[in-house]
Design a protein around this nucleic acid. Structure first.
Lengths: 202, 202
DNA sequence: AAATTTAAAATTGTATACATTTTATGATTT
DNA sequence: AAATCATAAAATGTATACAATTTTAAATTT
Protein backbone atom coordinates (compact mmCIF):
# COMPACT_ATOMS: atom_id res chain seq x y z
CA UNK A 1 0.00 0.00 0.00
CA UNK A 2 1.42 3.36 -0.98
CA UNK A 3 -0.83 5.57 1.08
CA UNK A 4 -0.23 6.23 4.74
CA UNK A 5 -2.25 4.24 7.23
CA UNK A 6 -3.60 7.44 8.65
CA UNK A 7 -5.02 8.62 5.33
CA UNK A 8 -6.40 5.19 4.55
CA UNK A 9 -8.18 5.14 7.88
CA UNK A 10 -9.47 8.68 7.52
CA UNK A 11 -10.95 8.11 4.09
CA UNK A 12 -12.41 4.73 4.92
CA UNK A 13 -14.13 5.93 8.05
CA UNK A 14 -15.39 9.11 6.45
CA UNK A 15 -16.80 7.24 3.48
CA UNK A 16 -18.46 4.65 5.66
CA UNK A 17 -20.16 7.39 7.61
CA UNK A 18 -21.23 9.31 4.52
CA UNK A 19 -22.55 6.17 2.84
CA UNK A 20 -24.55 5.31 5.90
CA UNK A 21 -22.65 2.07 6.48
CA UNK A 22 -21.90 3.42 9.90
CA UNK A 23 -25.24 4.76 11.09
CA UNK A 24 -25.74 8.12 12.77
CA UNK A 25 -25.34 8.12 16.47
CA UNK A 26 -23.15 5.02 16.50
CA UNK A 27 -20.23 5.00 18.84
CA UNK A 28 -16.88 4.34 17.24
CA UNK A 29 -14.22 2.35 19.03
CA UNK A 30 -10.64 2.66 17.97
CA UNK A 31 -9.86 -0.99 18.41
CA UNK A 32 -12.69 -2.26 16.29
CA UNK A 33 -12.01 0.14 13.45
CA UNK A 34 -8.33 -0.61 13.60
CA UNK A 35 -8.75 -4.34 13.16
CA UNK A 36 -11.41 -3.85 10.50
CA UNK A 37 -9.09 -1.63 8.51
CA UNK A 38 -6.03 -3.71 9.19
CA UNK A 39 -4.00 -0.95 10.82
CA UNK A 40 -3.12 -0.14 14.38
CA UNK A 41 -4.97 2.14 16.72
CA UNK A 42 -2.57 5.05 16.34
CA UNK A 43 -3.56 6.14 12.83
CA UNK A 44 -7.22 5.39 13.55
CA UNK A 45 -7.01 7.69 16.54
CA UNK A 46 -5.69 10.50 14.40
CA UNK A 47 -8.31 9.89 11.75
CA UNK A 48 -11.08 10.10 14.32
CA UNK A 49 -9.62 13.30 15.67
CA UNK A 50 -9.67 14.82 12.21
CA UNK A 51 -13.23 13.76 11.63
CA UNK A 52 -14.10 15.33 14.94
CA UNK A 53 -12.65 18.59 13.70
CA UNK A 54 -14.76 18.29 10.61
CA UNK A 55 -17.80 17.81 12.75
CA UNK A 56 -18.68 14.36 11.49
CA UNK A 57 -17.88 12.79 14.83
CA UNK A 58 -18.45 14.20 18.25
CA UNK A 59 -17.38 12.53 21.45
CA UNK A 60 -16.57 9.35 19.52
CA UNK A 61 -20.08 9.18 18.14
CA UNK A 62 -21.18 9.76 14.58
CA UNK A 63 -23.07 13.01 14.73
CA UNK A 64 -26.75 13.20 14.22
CA UNK A 65 -27.05 16.89 13.52
CA UNK A 66 -30.23 18.57 14.62
CA UNK A 67 -32.11 20.96 12.36
CA UNK A 68 -30.60 23.81 14.34
CA UNK A 69 -27.11 22.45 13.80
CA UNK A 70 -27.66 22.33 10.08
CA UNK A 71 -29.09 25.83 9.99
CA UNK A 72 -26.08 27.09 11.91
CA UNK A 73 -23.60 25.47 9.60
CA UNK A 74 -25.40 26.76 6.55
CA UNK A 75 -25.55 30.23 7.95
CA UNK A 76 -21.78 30.32 8.15
CA UNK A 77 -21.46 28.75 4.75
CA UNK A 78 -23.77 31.40 3.29
CA UNK A 79 -21.74 34.23 4.73
CA UNK A 80 -18.52 32.86 3.31
CA UNK A 81 -19.70 31.58 -0.05
CA UNK A 82 -21.85 34.66 -0.52
CA UNK A 83 -18.75 36.76 -0.11
CA UNK A 84 -16.83 34.49 -2.45
CA UNK A 85 -19.51 34.89 -5.12
CA UNK A 86 -19.15 38.64 -4.75
CA UNK A 87 -15.40 38.34 -5.32
CA UNK A 88 -15.99 36.15 -8.33
CA UNK A 89 -18.29 38.75 -9.84
CA UNK A 90 -15.63 41.38 -9.38
CA UNK A 91 -13.15 39.32 -11.28
CA UNK A 92 -12.90 35.82 -12.59
CA UNK A 93 -10.44 34.58 -15.17
CA UNK A 94 -11.66 33.66 -18.61
CA UNK A 95 -10.65 30.07 -18.05
CA UNK A 96 -12.62 29.75 -14.83
CA UNK A 97 -15.68 31.34 -16.39
CA UNK A 98 -15.59 28.65 -19.02
CA UNK A 99 -15.25 25.92 -16.44
CA UNK A 100 -18.14 27.41 -14.50
CA UNK A 101 -20.34 27.35 -17.55
CA UNK A 102 -19.31 23.78 -18.20
CA UNK A 103 -20.52 22.87 -14.71
CA UNK A 104 -23.92 24.31 -15.49
CA UNK A 105 -24.09 22.37 -18.71
CA UNK A 106 -23.18 19.08 -17.07
CA UNK A 107 -25.73 19.87 -14.41
CA UNK A 108 -28.38 19.70 -17.13
CA UNK A 109 -27.17 16.74 -19.17
CA UNK A 110 -24.85 14.63 -17.04
CA UNK A 111 -25.30 11.41 -15.16
CA UNK A 112 -25.94 11.56 -11.44
CA UNK A 113 -22.26 11.10 -10.65
CA UNK A 114 -21.28 13.74 -13.17
CA UNK A 115 -23.80 16.14 -11.69
CA UNK A 116 -22.43 15.48 -8.23
CA UNK A 117 -18.93 16.34 -9.42
CA UNK A 118 -20.06 19.37 -11.40
CA UNK A 119 -21.97 20.68 -8.43
CA UNK A 120 -18.91 20.36 -6.28
CA UNK A 121 -16.72 22.05 -8.87
CA UNK A 122 -19.13 24.91 -9.35
CA UNK A 123 -18.91 25.89 -5.71
CA UNK A 124 -15.20 25.22 -5.47
CA UNK A 125 -14.35 27.44 -8.40
CA UNK A 126 -16.24 30.28 -6.82
CA UNK A 127 -14.68 29.78 -3.41
CA UNK A 128 -11.23 29.71 -4.88
CA UNK A 129 -11.88 32.90 -6.77
CA UNK A 130 -11.77 34.76 -3.48
CA UNK A 131 -8.04 34.13 -3.41
CA UNK A 132 -8.34 33.51 0.28
CA UNK A 133 -6.92 30.11 1.15
CA UNK A 134 -7.88 30.59 4.75
CA UNK A 135 -11.53 30.99 3.81
CA UNK A 136 -11.28 27.98 1.53
CA UNK A 137 -9.90 26.08 4.47
CA UNK A 138 -12.78 26.95 6.73
CA UNK A 139 -15.24 25.86 4.07
CA UNK A 140 -13.21 22.73 3.42
CA UNK A 141 -13.76 21.79 7.02
CA UNK A 142 -17.51 21.75 6.45
CA UNK A 143 -17.00 19.47 3.51
CA UNK A 144 -18.34 16.29 4.98
CA UNK A 145 -21.59 17.91 5.97
CA UNK A 146 -21.82 19.71 2.65
CA UNK A 147 -21.30 16.41 0.85
CA UNK A 148 -24.23 14.90 2.68
CA UNK A 149 -26.39 17.74 1.46
CA UNK A 150 -25.12 17.68 -2.07
CA UNK A 151 -26.04 14.04 -2.21
CA UNK A 152 -29.57 14.79 -1.10
CA UNK A 153 -30.23 17.59 -3.56
CA UNK A 154 -28.72 15.78 -6.51
CA UNK A 155 -30.11 12.32 -5.90
CA UNK A 156 -33.56 13.71 -5.23
CA UNK A 157 -33.46 16.15 -8.06
CA UNK A 158 -34.13 19.35 -6.24
CA UNK A 159 -36.12 21.68 -8.52
CA UNK A 160 -34.37 24.77 -9.89
CA UNK A 161 -30.97 23.61 -8.64
CA UNK A 162 -29.27 24.13 -11.96
CA UNK A 163 -31.36 27.17 -12.86
CA UNK A 164 -29.99 28.82 -9.76
CA UNK A 165 -26.45 27.90 -10.72
CA UNK A 166 -27.02 29.45 -14.11
CA UNK A 167 -28.33 32.67 -12.60
CA UNK A 168 -25.31 32.89 -10.35
CA UNK A 169 -23.09 32.28 -13.32
CA UNK A 170 -24.81 35.08 -15.23
CA UNK A 171 -24.36 37.53 -12.40
CA UNK A 172 -20.67 36.67 -12.19
CA UNK A 173 -20.28 36.97 -15.95
CA UNK A 174 -21.95 40.38 -15.95
CA UNK A 175 -19.90 41.62 -13.01
CA UNK A 176 -22.81 42.13 -10.66
CA UNK A 177 -21.36 41.52 -7.20
CA UNK A 178 -24.45 42.38 -5.14
CA UNK A 179 -26.54 40.17 -7.38
CA UNK A 180 -24.10 37.30 -7.23
CA UNK A 181 -23.88 37.40 -3.46
CA UNK A 182 -27.63 37.57 -3.02
CA UNK A 183 -28.25 34.74 -5.49
CA UNK A 184 -25.68 32.52 -3.86
CA UNK A 185 -27.20 33.06 -0.45
CA UNK A 186 -30.66 32.29 -1.78
CA UNK A 187 -29.33 29.22 -3.52
CA UNK A 188 -27.84 27.85 -0.32
CA UNK A 189 -30.97 28.66 1.64
CA UNK A 190 -33.00 26.71 -0.89
CA UNK A 191 -30.63 23.76 -0.56
CA UNK A 192 -31.00 23.86 3.17
CA UNK A 193 -34.78 24.01 3.21
CA UNK A 194 -35.05 21.22 0.68
CA UNK A 195 -32.72 18.99 2.65
CA UNK A 196 -34.39 19.71 5.95
CA UNK A 197 -37.77 18.69 4.62
CA UNK A 198 -36.21 15.57 3.22
CA UNK A 199 -34.23 14.53 6.22
CA UNK A 200 -37.25 14.94 8.43
CA UNK A 201 -39.39 12.80 6.12
CA UNK A 202 -36.84 10.03 5.55
CA UNK B 1 -0.99 16.10 37.98
CA UNK B 2 -4.73 16.18 37.45
CA UNK B 3 -4.76 17.36 33.84
CA UNK B 4 -4.24 15.06 30.93
CA UNK B 5 -0.80 14.99 29.38
CA UNK B 6 -2.29 16.00 26.08
CA UNK B 7 -3.86 19.17 27.47
CA UNK B 8 -0.73 20.03 29.41
CA UNK B 9 1.33 19.72 26.27
CA UNK B 10 -1.14 21.70 24.17
CA UNK B 11 -1.29 24.62 26.57
CA UNK B 12 2.42 24.68 27.21
CA UNK B 13 3.36 24.70 23.56
CA UNK B 14 0.71 27.23 22.63
CA UNK B 15 1.77 29.59 25.39
CA UNK B 16 5.43 29.28 24.51
CA UNK B 17 4.65 30.20 20.93
CA UNK B 18 2.42 33.13 21.87
CA UNK B 19 4.97 34.46 24.37
CA UNK B 20 7.66 34.29 21.78
CA UNK B 21 9.70 31.75 23.77
CA UNK B 22 9.52 29.58 20.69
CA UNK B 23 10.34 31.95 17.85
CA UNK B 24 8.42 32.16 14.58
CA UNK B 25 9.60 29.83 11.92
CA UNK B 26 11.18 27.41 14.34
CA UNK B 27 10.77 23.75 13.62
CA UNK B 28 9.22 21.70 16.39
CA UNK B 29 10.33 18.16 17.05
CA UNK B 30 8.11 15.84 18.98
CA UNK B 31 10.92 14.21 20.87
CA UNK B 32 12.45 17.41 22.15
CA UNK B 33 9.14 18.86 23.29
CA UNK B 34 8.19 15.59 24.89
CA UNK B 35 11.27 15.40 27.06
CA UNK B 36 11.07 19.11 27.90
CA UNK B 37 7.50 18.73 29.07
CA UNK B 38 8.10 15.42 30.76
CA UNK B 39 5.55 13.45 28.76
CA UNK B 40 5.80 10.99 25.93
CA UNK B 41 5.59 11.75 22.24
CA UNK B 42 2.01 10.57 21.88
CA UNK B 43 0.29 13.48 23.64
CA UNK B 44 2.76 15.96 22.15
CA UNK B 45 1.87 14.67 18.71
CA UNK B 46 -1.79 15.29 19.32
CA UNK B 47 -1.11 18.73 20.73
CA UNK B 48 0.89 19.70 17.65
CA UNK B 49 -1.89 18.43 15.44
CA UNK B 50 -4.39 20.63 17.24
CA UNK B 51 -2.15 23.65 16.97
CA UNK B 52 -1.82 22.92 13.28
CA UNK B 53 -5.59 23.07 12.99
CA UNK B 54 -5.55 26.39 14.77
CA UNK B 55 -3.04 27.65 12.28
CA UNK B 56 -0.27 28.33 14.78
CA UNK B 57 1.87 25.56 13.37
CA UNK B 58 2.22 24.49 9.80
CA UNK B 59 4.30 21.57 8.61
CA UNK B 60 5.81 21.28 12.10
CA UNK B 61 7.01 24.85 11.98
CA UNK B 62 5.72 27.78 13.99
CA UNK B 63 3.96 29.90 11.44
CA UNK B 64 5.26 33.23 10.39
CA UNK B 65 2.14 34.59 8.79
CA UNK B 66 2.60 36.91 5.87
CA UNK B 67 0.67 40.12 5.55
CA UNK B 68 -1.60 38.39 3.08
CA UNK B 69 -2.25 35.57 5.53
CA UNK B 70 -3.28 38.03 8.19
CA UNK B 71 -5.52 39.93 5.80
CA UNK B 72 -7.18 36.68 4.79
CA UNK B 73 -7.81 35.61 8.33
CA UNK B 74 -9.20 38.99 9.24
CA UNK B 75 -11.44 39.04 6.24
CA UNK B 76 -13.12 35.88 7.44
CA UNK B 77 -13.25 37.16 10.98
CA UNK B 78 -14.92 40.35 9.76
CA UNK B 79 -17.59 38.48 7.89
CA UNK B 80 -18.45 36.38 10.91
CA UNK B 81 -18.13 38.92 13.68
CA UNK B 82 -19.85 41.53 11.55
CA UNK B 83 -22.79 39.20 11.24
CA UNK B 84 -22.66 38.47 14.95
CA UNK B 85 -22.79 42.19 15.74
CA UNK B 86 -25.85 42.43 13.54
CA UNK B 87 -27.51 39.63 15.53
CA UNK B 88 -26.58 41.32 18.76
CA UNK B 89 -28.22 44.55 17.62
CA UNK B 90 -31.38 42.66 16.82
CA UNK B 91 -31.53 41.25 20.30
CA UNK B 92 -29.27 41.08 23.29
CA UNK B 93 -30.33 40.23 26.81
CA UNK B 94 -30.33 42.94 29.45
CA UNK B 95 -27.62 41.10 31.37
CA UNK B 96 -25.29 40.90 28.41
CA UNK B 97 -25.79 44.54 27.55
CA UNK B 98 -24.63 45.37 31.05
CA UNK B 99 -21.59 43.14 30.71
CA UNK B 100 -20.80 44.73 27.37
CA UNK B 101 -20.91 48.18 28.88
CA UNK B 102 -18.69 47.00 31.70
CA UNK B 103 -16.11 45.89 29.13
CA UNK B 104 -16.05 49.36 27.65
CA UNK B 105 -15.60 50.87 31.08
CA UNK B 106 -12.71 48.58 31.97
CA UNK B 107 -11.22 49.37 28.60
CA UNK B 108 -10.92 52.98 29.75
CA UNK B 109 -9.79 52.53 33.33
CA UNK B 110 -8.34 49.04 33.76
CA UNK B 111 -4.81 47.75 33.95
CA UNK B 112 -3.28 46.27 30.84
CA UNK B 113 -4.24 42.76 31.87
CA UNK B 114 -7.76 43.84 32.68
CA UNK B 115 -8.04 45.55 29.32
CA UNK B 116 -6.83 42.41 27.59
CA UNK B 117 -9.53 40.40 29.33
CA UNK B 118 -12.23 43.01 28.72
CA UNK B 119 -11.35 43.20 25.07
CA UNK B 120 -11.65 39.46 24.77
CA UNK B 121 -14.97 39.42 26.62
CA UNK B 122 -16.40 42.22 24.50
CA UNK B 123 -15.95 40.24 21.33
CA UNK B 124 -16.97 36.95 22.89
CA UNK B 125 -20.24 38.30 24.21
CA UNK B 126 -21.13 39.54 20.76
CA UNK B 127 -20.15 36.31 19.05
CA UNK B 128 -22.19 34.30 21.49
CA UNK B 129 -25.20 36.50 20.90
CA UNK B 130 -25.51 34.97 17.46
CA UNK B 131 -26.65 31.77 19.14
CA UNK B 132 -24.64 29.87 16.58
CA UNK B 133 -22.20 27.56 18.34
CA UNK B 134 -20.82 26.47 15.01
CA UNK B 135 -19.86 30.03 14.15
CA UNK B 136 -18.39 30.49 17.60
CA UNK B 137 -16.35 27.38 16.93
CA UNK B 138 -14.94 28.67 13.69
CA UNK B 139 -13.93 31.90 15.37
CA UNK B 140 -12.53 29.99 18.32
CA UNK B 141 -10.18 28.26 15.93
CA UNK B 142 -8.70 31.62 14.98
CA UNK B 143 -8.14 32.36 18.63
CA UNK B 144 -4.41 32.01 18.77
CA UNK B 145 -3.91 34.44 15.93
CA UNK B 146 -6.51 36.79 17.36
CA UNK B 147 -4.71 36.70 20.68
CA UNK B 148 -1.49 37.80 19.05
CA UNK B 149 -3.29 40.78 17.62
CA UNK B 150 -5.12 41.68 20.77
CA UNK B 151 -1.80 41.78 22.53
CA UNK B 152 -0.42 44.19 19.96
CA UNK B 153 -3.33 46.63 20.04
CA UNK B 154 -3.63 46.65 23.81
CA UNK B 155 0.05 46.77 24.72
CA UNK B 156 0.71 49.50 22.18
CA UNK B 157 -2.38 51.45 23.01
CA UNK B 158 -4.02 51.61 19.65
CA UNK B 159 -5.87 54.93 19.34
CA UNK B 160 -9.68 54.89 19.33
CA UNK B 161 -9.78 51.21 20.28
CA UNK B 162 -12.20 51.74 23.12
CA UNK B 163 -14.08 54.52 21.35
CA UNK B 164 -14.88 52.04 18.65
CA UNK B 165 -16.07 49.51 21.18
CA UNK B 166 -18.33 52.13 22.66
CA UNK B 167 -19.82 53.01 19.28
CA UNK B 168 -20.52 49.37 18.59
CA UNK B 169 -22.11 49.07 22.00
CA UNK B 170 -24.32 52.07 21.25
CA UNK B 171 -25.47 50.63 17.96
CA UNK B 172 -26.35 47.36 19.64
CA UNK B 173 -28.15 49.15 22.44
CA UNK B 174 -30.17 51.19 19.95
CA UNK B 175 -31.02 48.16 17.83
CA UNK B 176 -29.26 49.34 14.70
CA UNK B 177 -28.14 46.14 12.97
CA UNK B 178 -26.68 47.71 9.82
CA UNK B 179 -24.79 50.20 11.92
CA UNK B 180 -23.49 47.55 14.29
CA UNK B 181 -22.25 45.34 11.50
CA UNK B 182 -20.55 48.18 9.68
CA UNK B 183 -18.90 49.49 12.84
CA UNK B 184 -17.63 46.05 13.80
CA UNK B 185 -16.12 45.54 10.39
CA UNK B 186 -14.44 48.94 10.51
CA UNK B 187 -13.17 48.18 13.99
CA UNK B 188 -11.55 44.94 12.90
CA UNK B 189 -10.09 46.57 9.81
CA UNK B 190 -8.53 49.24 12.01
CA UNK B 191 -7.06 46.55 14.27
CA UNK B 192 -5.59 44.83 11.28
CA UNK B 193 -4.02 47.90 9.76
CA UNK B 194 -2.56 48.95 13.09
CA UNK B 195 -1.05 45.54 13.68
CA UNK B 196 0.33 45.25 10.20
CA UNK B 197 2.19 48.51 10.49
CA UNK B 198 3.51 47.38 13.84
CA UNK B 199 4.58 43.94 12.90
CA UNK B 200 6.46 45.26 9.90
CA UNK B 201 8.27 47.86 12.00
CA UNK B 202 9.16 45.58 14.90
C1' DA C 1 -38.76 -4.72 41.79
C1' DA C 2 -35.87 -0.63 42.23
C1' DA C 3 -31.71 1.17 43.83
C1' DT C 4 -26.97 0.65 45.18
C1' DT C 5 -22.70 -1.41 45.20
C1' DT C 6 -18.97 -4.15 43.30
C1' DA C 7 -16.43 -6.65 40.04
C1' DA C 8 -15.44 -7.35 35.26
C1' DA C 9 -14.80 -6.01 30.83
C1' DA C 10 -14.11 -2.65 27.54
C1' DT C 11 -12.10 1.52 26.07
C1' DT C 12 -9.19 5.19 26.05
C1' DG C 13 -4.75 7.57 27.35
C1' DT C 14 0.10 7.23 27.54
C1' DA C 15 4.62 5.21 26.99
C1' DT C 16 7.77 2.79 24.37
C1' DA C 17 9.80 0.09 20.65
C1' DC C 18 10.54 -0.51 16.03
C1' DA C 19 10.12 0.64 10.91
C1' DT C 20 10.23 3.96 7.51
C1' DT C 21 11.23 8.26 5.77
C1' DT C 22 13.61 12.56 5.75
C1' DT C 23 17.49 15.35 6.56
C1' DA C 24 22.16 16.32 7.37
C1' DT C 25 27.06 15.18 6.73
C1' DG C 26 30.95 14.12 4.58
C1' DA C 27 33.38 11.50 1.08
C1' DT C 28 34.05 11.12 -3.87
C1' DT C 29 33.91 12.62 -8.38
C1' DT C 30 34.00 16.04 -11.94
C1' DA D 1 35.26 24.41 -5.65
C1' DA D 2 30.81 22.62 -7.05
C1' DA D 3 28.06 18.71 -7.73
C1' DT D 4 26.84 14.03 -6.80
C1' DC D 5 26.40 10.25 -4.16
C1' DA D 6 26.62 7.31 0.05
C1' DT D 7 26.16 6.91 4.70
C1' DA D 8 24.75 8.14 9.21
C1' DA D 9 21.72 10.57 12.10
C1' DA D 10 17.43 12.40 13.18
C1' DA D 11 12.61 12.60 12.97
C1' DT D 12 8.25 10.86 11.95
C1' DG D 13 4.81 7.06 11.29
C1' DT D 14 3.07 2.92 13.09
C1' DA D 15 2.51 -0.92 16.22
C1' DT D 16 2.16 -2.68 20.62
C1' DA D 17 2.13 -2.88 25.66
C1' DC D 18 0.54 -1.27 29.78
C1' DA D 19 -1.99 1.97 32.96
C1' DA D 20 -6.00 4.61 34.05
C1' DT D 21 -10.56 5.41 33.28
C1' DT D 22 -15.13 4.48 31.92
C1' DT D 23 -18.79 1.45 30.94
C1' DT D 24 -21.37 -2.67 31.64
C1' DA D 25 -23.32 -6.27 34.04
C1' DA D 26 -24.13 -8.86 38.02
C1' DA D 27 -24.84 -9.28 42.80
C1' DT D 28 -26.57 -7.41 46.92
C1' DT D 29 -29.36 -4.55 49.61
C1' DT D 30 -33.46 -1.92 50.52
Amino acid sequence: MSQSAYLTAYEAIRDQILNGEIPRGQKLTEDKLASELGVSRTPVREAIRKLEEEGLIKKKKVVNPSETDLRNIFHVRSLLEGDAARSAAEYLSEEKLIRLKECVKIGRNGTVDEIMAANKDFHEIIVQSSNNPFMADVIERMNSIIYLFRKTVVYHNRPFLIDEHEKIYDAILKHQPDQAEELMKKHLRADLEFCLRFIRVE
